[in-house]
Design a protein around this nucleic acid. Structure first.
Lengths: 210, 210
DNA sequence: GTATGACATGTCCTGACTTACCGGTCGGAG
DNA sequence: CTCCGACCGGTAAGTCAGGACATGTCATAC
């Protein structure tokens, strides 16, 4: 049900079509909750049936923009305030770490090198986004961190004409908080992987010395 | 395909039945990769068809214990060394944080209080597991951290009769590394949520002053 | 003796999610 | 004016995951 509420939350910022929402979802929520466009179109239809959103306007090529209804807004708020948080994690890196003992020291070292590198880079990316969020506190939107990478960091959507989140808005502030989470999370993973490199010379051959 | 390799990895430690593996999976891998028993039985059948595991013995009440084959062991190793790590994350907490601006200051404060509390507790749990892993380095297995909680921390499986992981083994060492990841991850989330509490008095009413 | 509870193995159905495919439209380059 | 590539909105097929249901065994306590 997180996809549902993610979409409602995005529509609370302003109307958007399925295509819009797909991009906005990927850009702002992707790192925390991946979603492909077929899921989004399907969910939009369901939300519309449920009366939580409605068609706002018809655009150029069959484009349908949706708008959130009062019932929809109430539902997101209810979710945020009342529903229990699902703390389930699913991290392949951690799964693998349980089986490190099956790897040769060389493979393990190479693997950890790659992991440290990836986590460090990603952490840096979020730190930049967080810093950008801080800088845009009073002034107009300053330098945009490049969102050209396919990985798609948490970044504000393009200032859409209607009801979009201008920088400095509460939306942008929440986004900045989310970026901070990304920065801290990936930094923790980076330092973990780095620490793991130093841990064990004792490896697969189970210590043949008596 | 992570479930598949998770099962292979568990079976690399020693044989086990579907029931065994369900518990071992939940205890040692659950926090990083949740899996229910229907999935596990289905995957065991598939693995058996593929020749990566085979029936080791038949027990009391239709119990079938599986053993990993050479092909299976090679497959886990191949996965660990060659397959690219899937760094996808799916964290509902982060998803919610993007929508904090929709919450009333009171609801948000209450929410963050609960989050900090949960993360702090969970981090502590993993710290204890990590410490227990350190202590059991040379001696026999010392005090087991209680695994009575349903949440199921990362903890070593009971020393099974055949081929199990005794404490101090490479398996236990990997488990200790995994516990460290849990501790650092949840500590990062705890400190993030705590930091988020202090951030913004500026909330839902969008700053009406001109 | 029998009721309870842990052990043990599964099926079934629904819903979540992915991959792949499909067709139509608009703007601009040539 | 025609072709290309991005825009746009889907459908279909199939996999994966989760919850509920079904079935039966063994040990033990009463």
């Amino acid at each position: 049900m997180s996809l549902r509420h993610g979409l409602l939350g995005l529509l609370a910022e302003g109307p958007g079509s399925g295509y819009d929402l797909t991009r906005r979802f990927r850009q702002t929520l992707g790192p925390a909750w991946p979603a492909q466009h077929p899921q989004i179109y399907a969910e939009l239809a369901r939300l519309s049936d449920a009366g939580l959103i409605e068609v706002d306007s018809h655009g150029p090529r069959g484009r349908k923009a949706y708008r959130i209804t009062d019932a929809g807004l109430a539902e997101v708020r209810r979710w945020l305030a009342e529903d229990r948080v699902d703390h389930t994690l699913r991290i392949e890196s951690l799964l693998r770490s349980v089986f490190f003992w099956l790897m040769s020291p060389d493979d393990l070292a190479a693997h950890l090198d790659r992991e440290v590198c990836y986590y460090e880079e990603t952490a840096e990316l979020y730190r930049q986004l967080a810093a950008a969020g801080d800088r845009s506190g009073g002034t107009d939107r300053g330098g945009r961190a490049d969102s050209g990478t396919d990985r798609g960091g948490i970044s504000p959507p393009d200032a859409s004409s209607s009801g979009g989140a201008s920088t400095g808005s509460p939306q942008a502030q929440s986004l900045r908080v989310a970026s901070e989470a990304g920065a801290r999370l990936f930094q923790a993973l980076a330092s973990w992987a780095d620490w793991a490199r130093t841990v064990p010379p004792a490896a697969a051959p189970p210590a043949r010395r008596p």
